[in-house]
Structure formats: structure tokens, C-alpha cells
């Protein structure tokens, strides 16, 4: 997907200032060829992060944006310069990770336009690309399959072992998962960067804590009840001991929580045994797919649901029509 990359590199060479709008997917703000801000429709921006983390309500931020801007935010707001810079840095890199591979949406450049939170940190375009590639490689190193990146996050109703260690983002993902939210939905809800949630999901997938992506709708609903029971269990555990290790308490909660939920949970577990989640094979580390080229990019907009036979038919029709003319 070179177009956006090359376009951006060209703008950097010309040292342009302005905003590059990439369809509805996002906008890239540049100042003299360096990126100052980037927003992506699929990742939480600085405003969303500040609001979700309880720093400043979004309404107050909008007021500041209309009157006073960034300077007033620093003078009055509860954010220090270091924090704002770090927040912008995180948000821009996160947006870049999801926006740059998209391309092809007829980007439009408007000279002169600036973002009100721009100017906190300047990104070299080549550096941005390098960092995105490094992040992608790191994701693939943790867990090579991109299947779970776009599927709803569904933690297993039962732990495949006695205990497990979760870091803070993983904990938020487990408690926030409702069997319908995809990793990027969760990121917006939690005010975490999309990349950090993807990392958490891949780490959990590698540890075998997530159910394989659902194929049909009925299992979807079943997943919802069981995951709610798991959440109850983990919450109870949190009250008992502060260590972020979810143990078999989850199954207890399923038992005394609701009997029919427990039955469904067992059915789900049986289904999982023949699941499609990729398994590690000894020596497979060397044969992992090169994530950059092979893995599917995150689709923007609704998923493509065409039947391959339809596609083949259309191709044949097209060929026949071309031969006619």
C-alpha cells in the first residue's frame, strides 16, 4: 500500500505545511515537512484519552479548543507539558500504526491547516515509518496470527491452568471485554492506545487465554453470558487479593452465578477443544509468516462478505463482456 507512504514522503521532502485528509479514515497534520499530529478514526485521540483517563471532560476540552487553545490548556488544565507531549506522542504513533497502511482513499492536502494540539512534538516522516514497521514486527513476534486483531475479544470462560499473570492493560481488556467489542472498540472505551490493546490481545492469545474468533451468530450470544460470568469471577478475585492473577475463581462464579450459564460454559469449552486457534508447533518460530507482507491489514469500514463463487462468476461475466466488445 505505497500511495500514502510515498505521498507523505513527498510532502516531507517539499517541507509542506498543512493537513492531509485521508478520506474518512483520518487526517495527518504537517508543519514544514514534519508530522505534528495525526488522527485516525479507529484509535482514541488525545482528547479521548484525556477524557477516558479522567483528566478533563471532553466538553471542557472543546471549550479550550475554541478559546485559548493549547497554551491555555497547559496554564489552567491539570496537564503538565511533559504529560501532554507524551500523550500526543503516543496518540500520533498509534494513529500512524493504523492509518498509514490504509492508503488509496484519495488523500486530499489542504495547505496551512493545523491541529490545535499540534506543535507539541515533531515527527520525522521516515522515523514514523520505521517505528510502525518495528511495532508490526514486534506484534508478529509475540503471536504471528492477525486473526484476533479484528474479532471481538472473548476471554476463555475457564482458565487452561491454575493461575495466570496479567499486566495492567490485559487486566483492563479482560474486565472490559463483552464478547462484542473488538480490540479497537475496547481501546476507545478504555482510553488506551489501539496498539497497546492489540499487544495485550496478542499476548493473551499466545498464552491461550482467548477463545477463537466466532464463526456464527448463536455462539456469539453464548459467549456473552459466559464472559459475563468470568468477569464476575475476576472482579470477585480482585476484591479478595490485589495480585493481578486470575485463578480458577472464575469457574466458581459460573457455578453459583447462574446454573444455565454454567451449562453453556461447559458446552463452549467442549467446542473450544476443536477450536481453530492456531497452536504453536515446536520449531515453528523460524517459519512464522513475515507479518508485514502476509497478514491482512485491518479493514476500514464493513467487512467484505462476498462469496468466492460470486466473485468467480463476476470475473467470468466481465471477461465475456470484454470479448464481446
Amino acid at each position: 500500500m505505497a500511495p500514502l507512504d510515498t505521498l507523505l514522503a513527498g510532502l516531507a521532502r517539499e517541507r509542506s505545511t498543512g493537513a492531509l485528509r485521508v478520506g474518512r479514515a483520518g487526517t495527518i497534520f504537517l508543519s514544514e515537512g514534519r508530522v505534528t499530529y495525526m488522527e485516525c478514526a479507529h484509535t482514541p485521540g488525545v482528547e479521548r484519552v484525556l477524557a477516558a483517563r479522567g483528566r478533563l471532560p471532553e466538553a471542557a476540552l472543546r471549550r479550550l479548543q475554541a478559546d485559548g487553545g493549547c497554551r491555555r490548556l497547559l496554564e489552567e488544565g491539570p496537564v503538565t507539558l511533559g504529560e501532554l507531549q507524551y500523550c500526543v506522542l503516543g496518540a500520533v504513533l498509534d494513529a500512524a500504526f493504523f492509518l498509514l497502511p490504509v492508503g488509496g482513499n484519495r488523500p486530499k492536502f489542504r495547505p496551512g491547516e493545523q491541529h490545535w494540539l499540534g506543535g507539541q512534538w515533531y515527527f520525522d516522516v521516515a522515523g514514523l515509518m520505521r517505528e510502525c514497521a518495528r511495532r508490526r514486527a514486534y506484534l508478529a513476534q509475540i503471536w504471528p496470527s492477525a486473526l484476533l486483531d479484528t474479532a471481538p475479544v472473548r476471554p476463555l470462560p475457564r482458565l487452561p491452568g491454575n493461575g495466570v499473570m496479567l499486566d495492567s492493560v490485559q487486566w483492563e481488556v479482560v474486565t472490559g471485554a463483552d464478547a462484542e467489542a473488538t480490540p479497537l472498540d475496547l481501546a476507545k472505551r478504555l482510553g488506551r492506545s489501539g496498539y497497546s490493546v492489540l499487544l495485550a490481545v496478542r499476548r493473551m492469545a499466545a498464552a491461550g487465554l482467548l477463545a477463537p474468533p466466532a464463526e456464527t451468530a448463536p455462539t456469539h450470544a453464548k459467549g456473552a453470558t459466559t464472559t459475563r460470568a468470568t468477569k464476575e469471577g475476576t472482579a470477585r478475585h480482585a476484591a479478595g487479593g490485589p495480585a493481578p492473577t486470575a485463578t480458577d475463581d472464575a469457574t466458581e462464579a459460573t457455578k453459583d452465578g447462574a446454573p444455565q450459564a454454567a451449562g453453556e460454559g461447559a458446552g463452549q469449552a467442549v467446542g473450544d477443544r476443536q477450536g481453530v486457534l492456531p497452536r504453536r508447533v515446536p520449531g515453528a518460530a523460524d517459519q512464522r509468516p513475515a507479518h508485514d507482507s502476509a497478514a491482512r491489514g485491518l479493514p476500514l469500514g464493513p467487512p467484505i462478505s462476498a462469496d468466492p463463487t460470486d466473485l468467480a462468476l463476476l470475473m467470468r461475466l466481465k471477461k465475456a463482456l470484454e470479448e464481446l466488445s
Binding site: 500523550c87 482510553g191 492506545s193
Partner: peptide, 8 residues
Amino acid sequence: ETVFEGPL
């Protein structure tokens, strides 16, 4: 520990 992302 920052409020936003994993620690700086």
C-alpha cells in the same frame, strides 16, 4: 506512572 499509557 502516567495516567495515559504504560509507564514512561
